[in-house]
C-alpha cells in the first residue's frame, strides 16, 4: 500500500482580455516607435505616463500629449532576492521606480548593467531599448546608469 496522500495541487488560472484603453493604447503605439508619450493635465499641469486619459487628482480629461525623455532618476527601488514561480530574470535583480525627465509620475522598470548593491536613490538611468519593439513596455529591456551625477533629493522629493 502506497503512502497516504498529504498534499494536493490546487492551481488557479484566470483568463482575461485586457484593453489598456485609448490613451494607453496610443502610448504603447509610440513605445513601438521608440518614443515615450505622456499626457499633461490642463488643471494641475502634471504629466502622466503611461497616460490614462484623465487626471485622477483633478478629474478632468488630459488631451495634451507630451514627449517624455527615456532617461530619468531612480526614486525608489527593491533588490529582488526571492525566487518565485514564473520568474524570468536571474536573482538578485533590481526593480525600481524611475521618474522620467519631464514626467510627474514614476514608472516601474528594471535597473541593470550595475551591481544590485550600487543602485541608489537619485541614480540617473536611461532606457536600453530592444531592436525589435512591440506595443509593450517590455520593448525597453531595462534601464542602465547614465554615469551622470546623482539628481539632488530636492528634485524628486515630491515623487517618493
Amino acid at each position: 500500500m502506497a503512502e497516504p496522500v498529504t498534499r494536493i495541487s490546487t492551481p488557479m488560472r484566470l483568463e482575461y482580455r485586457f484593453t489598456p484603453g485609448r490613451a494607453a493604447s496610443r502610448f504603447l503605439r509610440h513605445v513601438e516607435q521608440g518614443e515615450l508619450l505622456g499626457q499633461r493635465c490642463p488643471n494641475c499641469r502634471k504629466v502622466y505616463i503611461p497616460p490614462r486619459g484623465a487626471c485622477a487628482a483633478c478629474g478632468v480629461p488630459t488631451d495634451e500629449e507630451v514627449r517624455v525623455a527615456d532617461k530619468g532618476t531612480v526614486t525608489t527601488f527593491c533588490v529582488v532576492n526571492v525566487p518565485f514561480y514564473g520568474q524570468k530574470i536571474e536573482i538578485p535583480y533590481v526593480s525600481a521606480t524611475i521618474l522620467l525627465d519631464g514626467a510627474d509620475i514614476g514608472i516601474f522598470h528594471l535597473v541593470q548593467e550595475v551591481p544590485a548593491e550600487d543602485v541608489h536613490m537619485g541614480m540617473r538611468v536611461e532606457a536600453v531599448w530592444h531592436d525589435e519593439r512591440r506595443p509593450t513596455l517590455e520593448s525597453i529591456s531595462h534601464f542602465k546608469p547614465t554615469g551622470e551625477p546623482d539628481a539632488p533629493f530636492e528634485s524628486y522629493k515630491d515623487y517618493v
Binding site: P4, S9, R17
Partner: peptide, 27 residues
C-alpha cells in the same frame, strides 16, 4: 480598432496540505 487588446492570464500554482481527514478521502 486602434485600441489594443491582449490576453492577460494569471496563474497561481497553489498546493495545500490536506490533513488527516481530507487526506484519508484523497488516499
Amino acid at each position: 480598432d486602434d485600441v489594443l487588446v491582449a490576453p492577460n492570464i494569471l496563474e497561481y500554482p497553489y498546493a495545500r496540505s490536506v490533513g488527516p481527514v481530507i487526506g484519508r478521502f484523497m488516499t
